[in-house]
Each structure stands twice: as structure tokens, then as C-alpha cells.
Design a binder for these strands. Structure first.
Lengths: 187, 187
DNA sequence: TTCTTAACGCAAAGGAATTGCGTTAGTGCG
DNA sequence: CGCACTAACGCAATTCCTTTGCGTTAAGAA
């Protein structure tokens, strides 16, 4: 239930256990189906007692959400391909493929399996930052940029909606068409 | 983990139990927090044994998803206000408010708390049908219509994205702006 | 180094999930 | 209409997950 609160103890044992538990979750969710993933098994793999996990994360849902948010965090800045248009295309393609994949969809689902709404917001913040980074580059190049909010509403949102709800397959042509709507006249 | 499969027995006791369990879920989820909602309690309220629920729905997640999808089903056709534009505005306003509400968000969450992807697709199908109904009316009126897919991508998707991820509040002006993008020139 | 206390391990207790078996009641056939 | 068939249910025992009290360990501060 719990909080996954900011913990005043970040060093040594606490950090070691957190890393160990996260790794155990990643390993086990790759080995078995999500429905048979249980906290005692995770604890055993991580080399801790179950009560440690219960006290620190509260429930399986919170733990999975915590791990998913961590994995959803982009590791690098979006690729600089020379123009806002191509940057956006490259980023969108990667985003769409990662989120559409089996593990991507599982992570998104995990994010929602916790009552803590902060998790979903955090994911949203990640994509917003990435897009802002691309947008900021345009200023240094003096080219026509784009509005980040518009990209979120009309490129990111439709992609996520298809993944989560309609299940309709997408290709790069579809993504390009979405980008066209927020960057008109930049063929 | 189960299936919520189509059951060959639709009459009498089976139907009675299903209705009773659904009602128990609705009652209890209004009375207590989702985190303390448990199958034994639901079974007691519904007047059945827990094993009945486990066998029929598999898990709490599947049961909640089943109930949520049923409640998400629209009860009536979208209001006919005389034009496609106003129909769309009326429908979007209602959709946005229902989904943004506390119970709406809880139901969406429940839909994802089951590994069965069919549930989310079903919800998507509901909105698609509603929009199609509005679109079909335009044919009988000879007015400029709209593309349902476009409305899903650029009106429904942004709204859902804000509810699920960014948490950003919305008003009717925002929705109208979204509609403008898919129905240009119809001020 | 020493003190304080957050975080962990252990173990017991409580509750939920699973399953075998007998019973009830839809459904279809004669 | 009555009978056979079997899906679905109730009951109860078992297993596993979850919670909690208490003693111990180790991180952070003085």
C-alpha cells in the first residue's frame, strides 16, 4: 500500500537491497508469467526476507511500478540528427517501438498497477523532457521549431492510446503522418 | 488466472450469481478503499462462497476488470443536437467529465488490472461505436462529417493521455480546440 | 568514536488463494 | 414431460501469501 517514500538512508545496505530486489524483479519477470510472480519468490532471489519488501514497497503492485518507472527512464538524450524534424522522427520511432514491444507494454501496465499516481506522471515527465531537449536545439539552429504540448497531444497520445486501448498496429508512416500535423510545411 | 470465458449457462443461477457478485463489487468499492477490497468480503456480501468467484473470474483483477467494462458501457446513443459539430462537442464533454471523475479513473485503472487485453479493446470499441453513430447521422443530413479515426487519435487520445499520465486538468475550451483540429472550417 | 534510529531479519499469527469431492441445477434429448 | 448429462456451485482442507511484534544491524550525525 504504502508510500515508496523518499528514504533518508541512501547509502550502503539500503541501496544494496534496493538494487538487489530490482534485479530480482527483472530476472523473474523475464522467467515467468506476471500472474505467478510473487513477493516471496522475489525476496528469495534477492537474498532478503519477504517482510523487508512488504515494509519497504508495500505491495507487489507498488514494487512492479517502482521497477517499471526506473526502467522507463531514458538513458540518453535524444539523438541529434541535424534538424527538429528528423530528430522528432527518430525519437518517435524509437518511442513507438519501445512502448509497443512486449516488455514495453508490460512496463506500462505495471506503472498502473499501483495506486500511486506519481508513477504515471513521472513517465510523462520523462517524455516531456526528451521532447523539450529536442525543441531547445532548434533555438540554437534558428529553424522552425514545434510546441512540445502539441507533440504530446497529437503524436505521443495517439500512439499510447493505440497501444493501451485499440491494439491497432502502427508503422512509421503512421507516426510520420502524426508528426506532419504538428509540423506543417516541413516536408 | 483464468478467462472470464463465455459461459454456456446463461440462465437462472449462473446469471443470478453474476449479478449478485457484480453488485457486491460496486457496493463494496464505494464503501471502502480499493486496496482493502478482497474476494472473501465480496463473496460474503454476494452470498456465495469465495471459491465460486475464484473459479469463475480467476483473480480480483479479472473480476474488477469485468465489472468496470460492464459499467463503462454507454447506456444510450449520443445525443442528437442537430449537427455533427455540436453532437461531437456534447459527446466529448460528457466523455471527458465521466473519465476524469474519480470513479471514471478508478474504472480505467481496473480495466488494466487484468492481463486480459480484450477488456481495454472493448472500451475502445464502445467509444468507436458512439462516434460512428454520430458520424452516420451526418450522412442523413448532407453536412460535412468527420473521420472517426481522426477523432479517436486527436480528441479521445489526448484526453485519455492527460487523465492517465500527465494529470493535467482540462476544460471544455481545451476539448473544443481538439475538435477544431479534426473539423476545420466549422466554427 | 559514540549515540540515535531507520531499516532489516526472524518467527509467529492471521487471512487469502487453491483444490478435491460431493451436490445442485441448467440444458438437451428422447 | 421426464430423464440423463454435466457445468457450476458449496464445503472444507491445504497451501501460500501477508501482516506484525521484537530483537538486531548499520547508516547518519554530533
Amino acid at each position: 500500500m504504502a508510500t515508496v517514500k523518499e528514504r533518508p538512508r541512501l547509502g550502503g545496505r539500503s541501496a544494496r537491497i534496493q538494487a538487489s530486489v530490482h534485479e530480482a524483479v527483472e530476472q523473474l519477470s523475464a522467467e515467468m508469467d506476471r500472474s505467478e510472480l510473487a513477493i516471496p519468490a522475489i525476496a528469495a532471489r534477492a537474498g532478503v526476507t519477504p517482510s523487508t519488501i512488504y515494509r519497504r514497497w508495500g505491495s507487489l503492485g507498488d514494487l512492479l511500478a517502482d521497477v517499471a518507472v526506473k526502467r522507463l527512464r531514458p538513458m540518453a538524450d535524444p539523438l541529434d540528427t541535424g534538424s527538429a524534424r528528423t530528430d522528432l522522427q527518430a525519437w518517435t520511432e524509437q518511442f513507438m517501438e519501445e512502448m509497443s514491444s512486449e516488455v514495453g507494454r508490460a512496463m506500462i501496465r505495471d506503472v498502473f498497477s499501483s495506486p500511486v499516481e506519481t508513477n504515471a506522471c513521472q513517465c510523462c515527465a520523462y517524455t516531456y523532457e526528451q521532447l523539450q531537449t529536442i525543441a531547445d536545439r532548434t533555438a540554437g539552429r534558428g529553424e522552425a521549431g514545434f510546441d512540445v504540448d502539441e507533440v504530446v497531444d497529437h503524436v505521443v497520445a495517439p500512439i499510447m492510446y493505440r497501444i493501451l486501448f485499440s491494439g491497432r498496429p502502427m508503422d512509421m508512416d503512421y507516426c510520420d503522418a502524426l508528426i506532419d500535423r504538428v509540423m506543417p510545411g516541413c516536408e
